[in-house]
Amino acid sequence: MPVVPVSTKHHPHDDAPDTAAAFARLSALPDGPERQALRDELVESWLPMARRVASRFRGRGENVEDLNQVAALGLVKAVDRYDPALGNAFESYAVPTITGEIKRHFRDHMWVLHVPRRVQDLRNRVRAALKDLVQTIPGRRPTVTEIAEYAHLSEDEVRTGLEALDCFAALSLDAELPGSEDGYDLADTLGEPDAGFDLVIDREAVKPALRTLPERDRTILYLRFFGGMTQLGIAQELGISQMHVSRLLSGCCATLREQVGTDAAQAPSHEGGRANTPGRP
């Protein structure tokens, strides 16, 4: 069984083997046990380089063993796809392939929130700038302006990158807020749907239609829905029968619904079922 020759004199790293001849032989071999064995030897020879690439991503929320495994997967893909006939060194092809595999792993498995690729790139550049700047600016955190100048980004891009730094993980809604002494948690800060907004829309939509009604009809609607008066009270106020008031109210509501639509006048449509309770048009 041929052994992959190892030489380090033509490579920038001590653990980079000289496998040019082995790759040339691999490309000429047909599928079979001999080719599989040579492929496995090539992968094993380049594993130290793959682990070195994986070490660049330590401290980002993933354990070392998983990083090494993803890097090894990228190395296998690089070995299978590398074409020595193109004249490029294997390492120059393998390093970007392994790096891309690790980055895809972070994008697909580590991000709790879906973040666009552009924002992820900004995050990485801001993170690298922060790491370098904290060594030259002791005692304080670099400012947005300093990060922007160092990373050649705009200040808005830096702010976007800083916001994305915490997107790998999410807080539970039951998490207690920092400095809270009475159990005030994150869920307490979230808003709820406000039905008042729908009421504003309905009132604004019905105003033009109300202006077209006769004055007596507008008075009856005002007393009923804004004055909170019962039909009997309105009848006594205007000197007409309660039955007449009921017919007028029904007619007014039907007219409003016809002009502004059922949604805008949904509240008055229930007049018959709450004749003795205050309401709104």
Rank of each mutant, 00 (worst) to 15 (best):
G261E: 09
S7M: 01
A129D: 10
S180V: 04
V43L: 08
E91Y: 00
D185Q: 12
Q231P: 01
L26W: 11
P96V: 07
G139H: 09
D40L: 03
Y222C: 03
D18L: 01
L122H: 09
P208T: 10
Y150M: 04
H152C: 08
L249Y: 06
A254L: 04
V115D: 14
N276P: 02
G273P: 00
I234Y: 11
Y184P: 01
H109G: 01
A195W: 04
P5Q: 06
T136I: 10
R52T: 08
F225T: 07
A89Q: 11
R211F: 00
A85E: 15
G74H: 06
V158S: 07
I234R: 15
L221R: 11
C252S: 15
P48W: 08
P2C: 00
Y184T: 15
D121A: 05
S7V: 03
S45C: 08
D156Y: 05
D188P: 00
E215S: 11
R25C: 05
A89C: 02
A195F: 04
H109W: 14
P138T: 11
P116K: 10
G273K: 15
E204Q: 15
A20C: 03
S27F: 06
I240C: 13
L162T: 06
F168R: 14
L171R: 06
F197T: 14
G228M: 11
R127S: 14
E204K: 14
H109F: 03
D217I: 00
R224Q: 11
P30D: 14
R117Q: 15
S269N: 07
G179Y: 12
Y93D: 13
A265S: 05
E155H: 12
D263E: 14
F57K: 10
E204S: 14
V119H: 09
R60A: 08
